[in-house]
Design a protein around this nucleic acid. Sequence first.
DNA 1: GTCTATATAGAGATAGAC
DNA 2: GTCTATCTCTATATAGAC
Lengths: 181, 181
Amino acid sequence: MREDTRSRIQQIALRLFTEQGYEATSLREIAEELGVTKAALYYHFKTKDDIVASLADDRVAEIEELLEWLRAQPRTPETRRELVVRYAERLDQPRQAELARFLERNQTALREHPKILRMREKMLEVVGELVEPGDPLTTRIRRSLAIFSLHAGMWLTQGVDAGPEERRKATVEVAISLLES
Amino acid sequence: MREDTRSRIQQIALRLFTEQGYEATSLREIAEELGVTKAALYYHFKTKDDIVASLADDRVAEIEELLEWLRAQPRTPETRRELVVRYAERLDQPRQAELARFLERNQTALREHPKILRMREKMLEVVGELVEPGDPLTTRIRRSLAIFSLHAGMWLTQGVDAGPEERRKATVEVAISLLES
DNA sequence: GTCTATATAGAGATAGAC
DNA sequence: GTCTATCTCTATATAGAC
């Protein structure tokens, strides 16, 4: 039982956008990998932009879910640690990892996309929940960097002689240490 | 006494590539801002790719200079701190800042560009000089993150009620703290 | 060193048949 | 839901005059 075509388009587009870049990937390429013609894509998505929008939606939903959870918790060090762990877990799912990579790597090309702006806002809100108004600037930077480092973590340890699980654990450990002070 | 056209092309291209993305910026736009025709650009640069190459060269040269200095020093905590300070100073020059932003934001579009590959190698070499073979994985991550955080620093503190100098100082402080352990 | 004019290619998108 | 065929636009790049 194969997946519906719409999902397959998203999946292939996501991979190609991530590998080659959004602008550098044509609808022809996507169609070819899917084994259909360009015109077929237009039945499922009104524009190329719509494909991006559908992808960004998934990521925004994930962040919003985390944000909702976060706001329902007391603002304690334990909550912040728990957020980092949850964030890392979500980011560890292959689909979310690829989505995040795509969105990071194509910031410029997508800079004015409404869905991307919304995602950026949501991320700022997450970081906002991690700090108090009176916190020093260095604390703000460190806490933001905690989230940021989860995205960078696997990249930073590439080429190191260690398994993915070990690398993941080390990344989370560093992120958590960035929450202190 | 106006600058030579070649430099002006680089300058305008760098700004547009950074603002809009490499693929999204056409030679027509660059020529228009410069006040000449597309054809004139081709006198100064053989291809669009050549413009990128000339830009990347500047950045690679800067990193290589730092790397040379670094390799001439003893591998001590003091040297690492000094590197972070020097790196931050270089990154604080407007041209290097813009170059770095351009190269970061267009990683995907430029992923196979020889000059970009070279730059990535050089960055890995810098990080390599900051760690010892026996260091734990978390140390590796933290030290890499120190450099990384200098790039992210100003972005992470955007919207915060603090002057650029204060933000810069705080960023360097966090970066240096990441070197410990 | 910059121009006009043009070649060539590929993009996103649509119409209408099946 | 997918096809063929085609429109329109814009891109990189080049030739050759001035």
